[in-house]
Simulated scan of single mutants.
Amino acid sequence: MSLRFARWTGCACALLILAGCGGTVRMEPPVPEGAAVAACKHLGERLPQKLDGADRVESTPASPYVAVWGEAQIALRCGVPRPVTMAATDQVPEIDGVAWFPDPTRPTLFTAIGREAYVEVTISQEHTPQNVLIDLAAPIKAALP
């Protein structure tokens, strides 16, 4: 397995562990490259302070590529690698103009694809994925051509 996959897996596990903790949420930021750097920073400026009823909270280390709501009930990382489980022939649903790859091995993980950068969103069972993805569609479309 690649180092990126190992980092991604570690981040996903940390998110699940921290889902019930209070205070600042520890979240490993991605390392976008090329045009994705500016696009992800632009996305970070457009994200809502409240998402599906959850308030945005701080994450550590601070990063313009990470946003967290409700003590890690919802987490977004912009500039992640292409999903390793996504095949070129996969059909993906489009929600409000954004194509989302639902990870078949992790039903709480969705990745916006077909944009300047991949945007990974993890949604806990306390929230309705469609509501979250609809609310994220406008900022994603505006920031990531």
Rank of each mutant, 00 (worst) to 15 (best):
Q91V: 14
V31E: 07
A142H: 12
I17Q: 08
P129F: 08
F110E: 00
D103V: 12
D55P: 13
I74M: 09
N131L: 11
L136T: 10
G20Y: 06
E94V: 15
M1G: 10
W100F: 13
V121W: 01
A99H: 02
A54C: 10
L144S: 04
A72N: 01
T60I: 05
T128H: 12
P104K: 09
L109W: 08
W100V: 08
K50M: 13
V80M: 03
G23F: 08
E28T: 06
A117E: 00
S124D: 06
V132K: 01
P102I: 03
A75P: 02
A6I: 05
I113D: 04
V92S: 09
P81F: 01
R115M: 04
Q91W: 09
P30F: 00
A14M: 13
D55N: 12
I95M: 07
L18C: 09
A35K: 15
C78H: 03
T89M: 07
V84I: 05
R7D: 00
D52F: 13
Q125W: 11
F110D: 00
A88F: 15
D96N: 15
P30Y: 00
L51C: 10
K50T: 15
A62L: 10
A36Q: 05
S2N: 10
L109M: 11
S2E: 02
D96M: 15
L18S: 11
P102S: 11
G22S: 15
S63Q: 03
Q125D: 00
T60C: 01
D96H: 15
I140K: 08
T111N: 08
